[in-house]
Nucleic acid binder design. Structure first.
Length: 425
RNA sequence: GUGGCCUUAGCUCAACCGGCAGAGCAUCGGAUUGUGGCUCCGAAGGUUACGGGUUCGAGCCCCGUAGGCCACCCCA
């Protein structure tokens, strides 16, 4: 017999942890609705090209981390599990002609994403993300609105306000010149670049900027920044984003070296980290503007912007800051019996109580009364309904497990009685 | 993907120099007939991650593989 286990980089979310995720998902859904986002669900996998064109072929996410599905013989297309939600949502926007919907279109989804990289704490091959996207709004006000929404989510989740880093990475008009200037800067100092960074220089000079190599950190202090090379339009846009953030009282840091790993971002980009912990594997979320993406995937030119929040990371951060662990629901009452074998009566009574809207567990394991009561007490139930001989007279014992007292109650009165007790805390 | 550390029961961990694999918690059962979280007693739970090698003998030493973790990388 082989011993099976969850695939590398995946994990089972067992009851206490899954409850924490459910709570975050509920907050996400409620919050998104409050901000006017409509729920949407797209497939967990797409044609590979959706990600290659959407996310960018030269990105690590596509080049190294894409979870490609083995094609079946005879099928003409190949698929990959989604590494992020935006490309699939853009594909859906184009496919369903959402440009004919009232603009802007605000969409939200929450679910698992997949990246085939080497697992580590906080870095999984399957992880969960809460995502919102806005199509058809060029900003700048909505850029600030989304950042504020993310802060609201963290707050309602019970997380200390994270550090927010914001930047503008320019657009087609100004970024090429900047990238060239940056490449020239590094080429002039190529002897100081580590071997790995020399290779990346030719492929994507922007990514050298946020390297954590000590040699690079030192070098980057003198590197040209995008900030003072933005075109007039981008500079004005970024200025307005900041003005809106300031008007909302949002605390953030402008980080001129912040770039993002996905090709589609233009102009506004941001990331969130736990306070004072801008380390690896700790990013709580991030987002940005992607004005050219809809067009790249075959749609009409449409501005877009969105963010993703890593639910796994939020759960981790909540634990790290010592937040109260989630409490799982416990039944109000447990139906137990003096006669272990008389399960039919216990099940029938529990069924009636549940039909009346009450949270009730029936102890159907055939164990003696003492063990049944012990289990009820240990799971935190407030009452035990004890079924015994008096059932012949239409009576059960209603036992208050906290007070260790009980009294006979007509079975017919039980639902109303328990419902009344349930309302008093 | 690169380098490093780690892996003993469901969980947390012991096991001398290479010499009979253990404890606590958790689980299940019992403590004279229908009443509790405590206590007492007991049971079950292991191919010491997996596969090789060295040795009279390997949880312990060596090699490989898998998984976890740390740094890089990358990001959520």
């Amino acid at each position: 017999m082989p011993s099976f286990r969850a695939p590398r980089g995946t994990r089972d979310l067992l009851p206490p942890e899954r409850t924490a995720f459910v709570r975050l998902e509920r907050i996400a859904a409620e919050l998104a609705a409050r901000y006017g986002f409509r729920p949407i669900e797209t497939p967990l996998f797409e044609q590979t090209g959706v990600f290659e064109r959407g996310v960018g072929e030269a990105t690590d996410v596509v080049e190294k981390e894409l979870f490609r599905l083995a094609p079946r013989s005879g099928e003409g297309e190949t698929w990959a599990l989604r590494p992020e939600p935006t490309a699939g949502l853009v594909r859906a926007y184009v496919q369903h002609g959402m440009q004919t919907w009232p603009q802007p279109v605000r969409l939200t989804t929450t679910g698992p994403m997949f990246r085939y990289d080497r697992p580590q704490a906080g870095r999984y091959r399957q992880f969960w993300q809460f995502d919102v996207e806005v199509f058809g709004d060029p900003g700048p006000a909505v850029d600030a609105e989304l950042i504020e929404l993310a802060f609201r989510f963290y707050a309602e989740a019970g997380l200390n306000p994270p550090d927010a880093y914001v930047n503008s990475i320019g657009d087609e008009a100004c970024r090429p010149a900047y990238v060239e200037a940056l490449a020239a800067f590094y080429r002039a100092r190529i002897h100081r670049l580590p071997a790995l960074e020399r290779q990346r220089l030719e492929r994507n000079p922007l990514r050298l900027l946020d390297s954590k190599e000590p040699a690079m950190v030192e070098l980057n202090a003198d590197a040209p920044t995008i900030t003072d090379r933005l075109c007039a339009e981008c500079a004005a846009h970024f200025g307005e984003v900041r003005a809106h953030l300031d008007a909302l009282g949002i605390r953030y840091v402008v980080d001129a070296r912040l770039v993002r790993g996905l090709d589609y971002y233009v102009r506004t980009a941001w990331e969130f980290f736990p306070v004072g912990a801008r380390g690896t594997q700790s990013a709580l979320g991030g987002g940005g503007r992607y004005d050219g993406l809809v067009e790249r995937l075959g749609g009409r030119p449409t501005p877009g912007i969105g963010f993703g929040i890593g639910l796994d990371r939020v759960v981790l951060a909540l634990e790290a800051q010592g937040a109260d662990s989630v409490t799982e629901p416990v039944p109000l009452a447990v139906v137990v019996g003096a006669e272990p074998g008389a399960t039919a009566a216990r099940l029938r009574i529990a069924t009636e109580l549940r039909a009346g809207g009450l949270s009730v567990r029936a102890d159907l394991a055939q164990r003696k009364l003492g063990r049944q009561l012990e289990a009820a007490v240990r799971e935190g139930a407030r009452f035990a309904v004890i079924v015994g001989d008096e059932l012949a007279d239409g009576l059960v014992q209603l036992r208050d497990l906290g007070a260790a007292s009980q009294k006979p109650v007509p079975l017919a009165d039980l639902p109303a009685l328990l419902r009344r007790k349930a309302t008093v805390a």
